[in-house]
């Protein structure tokens, strides 16, 4: 026992001799962790999910000439309906209208059964966030800006107006949120901008956005 301890301490004393390798191990460690941290880790953190139905905003906007707010409705009491229900889609799609097999699948699997589509929301916010779509209106913002409706929406939402298929949804495995869920600092790009205050009556107060 005594010997072993002496040996081990002996090794420690002549450690100076085996001080080989120079800076290489340090650099190797650095590079390995950088690769892990920037490339491997983000991939591990998110799971990829696709929308249950390949939905084309482009077809609806361009061919059908619709506007965002026709489906993403503000209700009379000022609350926002968010995604349309199957019933409201069925106003047009009561039967298969086009030749797209995805539309046919939608009609058969959802409209006919009355099931709701479990759409994945890219901007889903935590329960503690209160977001008023009524407050972020074209009228309000266009006092100074010159947004088209889809441009205004795209300030926060992915710009899907011209896309034929919905982007992949990245879900954070730890938090359960979408990769694109806005963080508070992103809201503050406008809310902490004092130029907005007098015009939009916005503010950066906590309770403007929290519930």
């Amino acid at each position: 026992m005594e010997d072993r301890q002496l040996n081990s301490s002996g090794c420690a004393t002549d450690g100076g001799k085996c001080c080989g390798g120079g800076i290489t191990p340090f650099l190797v460690g650095l590079v390995v962790s950088l690769i892990f941290g920037w490339w491997v880790f983000p991939d591990m953190l998110y799971s990829k999910k696709e929308q249950p139905i390949r939905f084309s905003h482009k077809v609806h906007m361009e061919s059908a000439g619709m506007e965002c707010k026709q489906c993403h409705v503000l209700r009379e009491d000022g609350t926002f309906a968010g995604l349309p229900s199957t019933a409201s889609c069925a106003d047009c799609h009561s039967d298969v209208m086009g030749s797209d097999p995805e539309e046919a699948r939608f009609v058969n699997e959802y409209v006919k059964t009355g099931k709701e589509v479990k759409w994945l929301v890219y901007q889903i916010q935590p329960d503690n966030v209160f977001f008023s779509h009524a407050a972020h209106s074209l009228d309000g913002c266009n006092q100074c800006h010159d947004f088209k409706e889809s441009e205004l929406c795209a300030q926060c939402h992915p710009d899907v107006a011209n896309s034929d298929s919905a982007p992949t949804h990245f879900e954070n495995k730890l938090t359960g949120y979408s990769k694109q869920t806005m963080k508070m600092w992103q809201c503050e790009r406008c809310h902490a901008n004092e130029n907005h205050y007098g015009v939009t009556n916005s503010s950066n107060a906590c309770f403007v956005c929290h519930k």
Binding site: C18, G29, L30, V32, S33, W38
Partner: peptide
């Protein structure tokens, strides 16, 4: 061959590196 000192250096590098990433 990675001796103890080398290993410690590796760990040091890895630590410095990881702090420079979002992990």
């Amino acid at each position: 061959a990675l001796d103890r000192r080398g290993f410690l250096k590796f760990i040091g590098g890895a630590t410095a590196g990881i702090l420079a990433t979002p992990v």
